[in-house]
Design a protein around this nucleic acid. Sequence first.
DNA 1: TAGATTACTGACCCTTCGGTCATTAACCTT
DNA 2: AAGGTTAATGACCGAAGGGTCAGTAATCTA
Lengths: 206, 206
Amino acid sequence: MRRKEARPSELTAAALELFVEKGFAATRLDDVAARAGVAKGTLYRYFDSKEALFKTVIEEGIVPALAAAEQQLVGYAGSGAELLRTLLAGWWQQIGSTRLGGVSKLVISEARNFPEIAQFYHDHVIVRGRALLRAALQRGIATGEFRSLDIDACIDVIIAPLLMLCIWRHSLCVCGNDIDPGRFLDTQFDILVNGLLAAPENMQCA
Amino acid sequence: MRRKEARPSELTAAALELFVEKGFAATRLDDVAARAGVAKGTLYRYFDSKEALFKTVIEEGIVPALAAAEQQLVGYAGSGAELLRTLLAGWWQQIGSTRLGGVSKLVISEARNFPEIAQFYHDHVIVRGRALLRAALQRGIATGEFRSLDIDACIDVIIAPLLMLCIWRHSLCVCGNDIDPGRFLDTQFDILVNGLLAAPENMQCA
DNA sequence: TAGATTACTGACCCTTCGGTCATTAACCTT
DNA sequence: AAGGTTAATGACCGAAGGGTCAGTAATCTA
């Protein structure tokens, strides 16, 4: 069957699954082709090399998800805490629980071997994500809703559990230790907001 | 030069560096041997296979660090917050900033290919680490110092940034984005404690 | 110092896998 | 239907690298 249109995305989808599961070096192109229901030679009609396939997998996985994530935030008008919750929930729906979650684990695993891909991921994902969080934190601090903290460090502290959740679901999940994303994110948000607020919701001023 | 005693640890040290840097599959035994100042054949005098070397690297990296970490906690008598700070600081000194930090990244990257190693890491590191944190949280909640939260979810939320800090330092560090561990941990602790406390330190009850 | 032991070497073997290409067959055009 | 175009194949190549082993030399024993 000849399917010129659909082939590239079928191949990158198959490649992403195997790269996330086995890592770049341990993934065989024969297996990628087989999973896409195609012979290995066909792969080279659409991609110049294994590394070219890898780059396409990363870029194609990131770009659409990024656009969706940023779209969600334009013109948002609410409290810092509400904005944070929207960001976290949106991130989980648009990124964490989707294909992009696997991409994160993949990039982290292979960053040392592919510095330019790490750089691409840094510039197009991490920097943009940090910018969104910075806006939320600055708004909260400016209004006095949040305490005045080291914003850049806060951003990393907020991002880390999110990335870790992705990684967990794509690696250590193999042992019984499966995290419940809902509980995890709720608790993360709870601690986070109470840790940031100048006047926590639960405080008892008797 | 014949160095029967020192060889195994020299080889595992070299292997750990390369595994963390390149991943298991992409690391060549010739390179491991070369870094240890030895020929490849020598490697097979001490290890049966590449995979056996891998297992030894993980286990040998974990066991001593674990013992030290648990030792630190026996008979500790302080508030929940103090206990938490001691745990985080101790974790960084004993584990995060040492060789074990690289082991975490390595295990996460290769967990899918080596389920039994993931299981070993889960049973000997994650379970024990969770037990330590559980004790600290339970103490804080029992005395009314901390709010009553979902303890298991809290544990994951606390652990995630720590693991992420390790991973960061061993992968995404390649782009300019180097995290300052001190600032990161201080901020993490600050948000964490204020998020957990029933009566935050900074609250203003005028 | 002669002989036994064993840590160590590195050339070699053999499988695996990224990459190629002559051939085939599906589709299009007229 | 004939001829042209191109998607798709899979046998093949060559390099890479895990693993082996006959040989070497350092160390030990007497």
